[in-house]
């Protein structure tokens, strides 16, 4: 029986089974890792065949599809996380150049001394990496979110991931020229650990903080000279009790 079903991988991948066979085969797939692996590799193969047929569609299709999605609800993902409120849908203007990014993004130098640095003059690649990291944090099973009084911002954090993301919009630029914002992890004993610096990009901010958050009692944002400081020196801008 299983052997018979196993022979169906190819026909399944090519959508050549009828409804009953498809249902039977999918039931079999659920319990057969070997078939799942074969189906996956044959799907890649079929995709390769299909891709070789590539032809530009009529240009009008693009506008039609892009218009249509604005009124089309997405199916919700299977993530069981108690999705914290986040301004996910903000339009990060810097994503544009990603368009035809052929090269694979390297996340080199992202983690620096326990705190991820999210520079003002970040490349698009770092921006995308930070955004992906923010999404990982936000979809972690233990993610929690706290509002931050800095524009419309939140800190979303995951203890399990030892990471937090400060995400916000409508954030005013630091009042003093040449200054940046910097995030600090404040421990129960009052000691601080330096986090990333950031400045708003058209009001949008995103900063990723990495480190053991279990001993951190609050996150603090101060104004610091460009490049950041090893210990807080500037005025306190916002404090979030965790």
């Amino acid at each position: 029986m299983a052997e018979n079903l196993h022979a169906l991988t190819g026909a399944y991948v090519l959508d050549a089974l009828d409804a009953d066979e498809t249902a039977a085969f999918e039931a079999h797939l659920a319990g057969c890792a070997e078939c799942r692996e074969e189906v996956a590799s044959l799907r890649e193969t079929a995709a390769f065949l299909g891709r070789a047929e590539a032809q530009s569609p009529p240009p009008a299709l693009r506008r039609r599809v892009l218009d249509a999605i604005t009124t089309t609800t997405q199916e919700r993902g299977p993530q069981p996380s108690p999705a914290p409120e986040l301004p996910f849908r903000r339009r990060f203007g810097w994503r544009r150049p990603l368009a035809a990014a052929a090269a694979v993004i390297m996340v080199g130098g992202l983690a620096a001394g326990g705190a991820v640095v999210y520079r003002d003059h970040r490349s698009d690649q770092q921006a995308v990496a930070a955004e992906a990291q923010m999404m990982r944090i936000a979809t972690a099973p233990d993610a929690v979110s706290h509002p931050v009084e800095l524009g419309t911002s939140h800190v979303v954090m995951s203890l399990a991931m030892s990471a937090a993301a400060l995400v916000g919009e409508h954030v005013p630029a630091p009042p003093d020229r040449g200054m940046v914002y910097q995030v600090w992890m404040v421990h129960g004993d009052g000691s601080t650990a330096a986090g990333p610096t950031f400045t708003p990009d058209d009001g949008d901010v995103l900063a990723i903080v990495k480190g053991d958050l279990s001993t951190v009692s609050e996150l603090m944002v101060t104004e610091e000279p460009d490049g950041g400081s090893p210990a807080p020196t500037g005025p306190k801008v916002a404090v979030v009790a965790l």
């Binding site: 299909g50 891709r51 047929e53 590539a54 032809q55 530009s56 569609p57 299709l61 693009r62 599809v65 892009l66 999605i69 604005t70 997405q74 993902g77 996910f88 849908r89 339009r91 990060f92 994503r95 544009r96 990603l98 368009a99 035809a100 955004e131 992906a132 999404m135």
Partner: peptide
């Protein structure tokens, strides 16, 4: 990103997949 409702990412993805989809 599209899975999180990102319309701009969708636009970029369109440019990657539309020709293979249409051709097939």
């Amino acid at each position: 990103l599209v899975a999180h409702g990102d319309a701009e990412a969708f636009e970029d993805l369109y440019d990657v997949v539309a020709a293979p989809v249409y051709g097939l």
